[in-house]
Design a protein around this nucleic acid. Structure first.
Lengths: 342, 342
DNA sequence: TTGTATGCGTTATCAT
DNA sequence: ATGATAACGCATACAA
């Protein structure tokens, strides 16, 4: 492609490349006389000049690109997060490279390698599992890195998250306040901060209220509708009294569970109440509309992008921005109600 | 960041940079003796060498990055498309830069500029509106470009789409076969291929069956749940007989419409049947589960990525790959049923 | 205010 | 099979 170089612009304007470079640079254009500046600008315009950011990056050591790594692009809760990231980065003229690991550590390894080879200025990831801590730590040593949504305790990597533990507590207290005394939780895939923290928060609040709490653990990797189905069936297949209040670790699991329960003759919320997590789009239109915990995805994305930007600029006051934790919010809809027997 | 350069690896291995370059290059490593190759490889490993793709790109004229431009990251139908793109590109070692226009032409202009400055090897976009034809045509002249999902007739840009017109026909014939004789369609934002084609297909099939068809046009830019609400209310506020079979141009509109209808005392499907479009995740879990037309998002994304890759490689037999059109599929669920009066 | 010269890290061409 | 060298397009330290 005969793309126009700075050299050609300079020649057309009758100046040296260095002068042309200065004239076109936003902050250094003051070092150039107004007359020559407009001459260069006109020449650039006329020739259709477009700066080669690759070359510029090579010279300046900055690419204007940050890598974004998510676990699952088809998880609807990720949409708002990506938006928040894209918007905040866009405002600074930075472009995001988006990648997906499907929660596979091998994938993550390869992706990190690729991003580092691309010399991205920074990395934002929501895909870290505990087992990836060392890997991500190494990445963070090479390039400004920010965790979003999922924390990685002990990694020392700055993180923008929200309080999953408090979210679990909200779910438990809501069910208890509705009169449920037999609780259960459908736990998301292991090795992930979000689910462990939610489980812990839920259990603590249940214990505090003296309510028995059954844990049903997932053996699957991704927290999907199908996983919710399996978890609900595992719950029903257990011997003993059936809980009436169930906390699903995300909305997909909740949806799958409600569907599976219905197939076994249990209606939600008449027979069993279900609380979800994330408040993904459309949860208010489900059958029934889902009571859930809102995860502030857009905000998380936006803040993560701003944090990584400030790290890149070196303006991050290291100590003060290590960890930002937003608050979850209980959204009450129709999937929870007082238990029948009361 | 003291990142290791090829130079240092060469020095450590006691060879020239050019030899080191050959040794590390996949296809040219045969030009190097096995002995020195392993010496170089070891040195690289030991020093933690990582090729600088920026520099490599500058020299070779290829970045290994393609730009992806979508209209709306929060539209759930885009998830599968992005996945298809990311997976197909990933298999070829190419990374996607993802951007969002919110269906604004200004945004699109800026984004194209940015991507071209980044010297992406190719561009895939689902965000083209008719008014953007000239802009995208110019882009396509600079870099291999592929349209996905939305066509841009007369632009001459290769496109991977599916048959929206046939999809509209499927919707109409389904409603008619259920016994509906009074039809209406809630039309998506103007200036966009998908919606115009769906409208046309629906109208044609209605006409062919002699069924009157009311068109309700959106005045909004994005086809959201809220837009669906407004469209449904506009429909009800019209004088004259109310249609019993409604085609919403996407699932979000359908959901908003059903919700608005319910607020006005009309139940779906008892009082009014609604067909959506896209078959986005969770439509089967809605109240009621949505009858809809499936748009093969993953396939579209995958094919678009493969097409742009072959264009980049220059292996695209120009004439044969201009336009690929997949087939839509009717998914019958519970939001449609025969009208009451029958 | 402008020009000169150099280097960012690679790869390709040409020798050897 | 390997080395020397130039060039990709740009930005900056330095000189004028």
């Amino acid at each position: 492609m005969g793309s126009v170089t700075l050299r050609e612009v300079a020649d057309a304007a009758g100046v040296d490349v260095s002068t042309a470079s200065r004239a076109l640079s936003a902050d250094k254009s003051s070092l150039v006389s107004t007359a020559t500046r407009i001459r260069v600008l006109e020449a650039a315009e006329r020739l259709g000049y477009r700066a080669n950011l690759q070359a510029s990056a090579l010279r300046r050591g900055r690419t204007g690109v940050v890598g974004v790594i998510v676990a699952d692009l088809s998880n609807p809760f990720i949409g708002p997060v990506l938006r928040g990231i894209a918007n905040a980065l866009g405002a600074r003229g930075v472009l995001p490279i988006m990648t997906e690991t499907r929660d596979s550590s091998d994938e993550l390894t390869q992706i990190c390698d690729k991003l580092l080879s691309q010399r991205v200025d920074g990395i934002i990831t929501t895909a870290g599992r505990y087992r990836d801590r060392a890997l991500l730590r190494r990445v963070a040593d090479e390039v400004p890195t920010v965790l979003a949504v999922r924390e990685l305790p002990g990694s020392g990597i700055p993180v923008i998250s929200h309080d999953d533990r408090a979210g679990g507590g909200l779910a438990a207290r809501h069910l208890i306040s509705q009169g449920h005394s037999d609780l259960a939780q459908l736990i998301g895939p292991g090795d992930v901060w979000s689910f462990e923290a939610r489980a812990k928060g839920f259990r603590e609040a249940a214990d505090a209220a003296g309510a028995p709490c059954l844990d049903v653990q997932a053996s699957v990797r991704l927290p999907t509708v199908e996983a919710g189905r399996q978890l609900a069936e595992a719950l029903l297949d257990r011997p003993g009294p059936k809980p009436t209040g169930v906390f699903a670790h995300n909305d997909s699991i909740a949806i799958g569970a409600i569907s599976a329960l219905r197939e076994r003759g249990l209606e939600c919320p008449a027979d069993i109440s279900v609380v979800g997590y994330n408040d993904v789009p459309l949860t208010d239109q489900l059958r029934p509309p889902l009571t859930t915990i809102r995860l502030p995805g857009y905000e998380l994305g936006r803040l993560a992008a701003e944090l990584v930007s400030s790290r890149i600029d070196g303006t991050g006051t290291e100590a003060t921005t290590e960890r930002v934790v937003l608050e979850p919010e209980l959204i009450v809809r129709d999937s929870t109600s007082p238990p029948k027997s009361i």
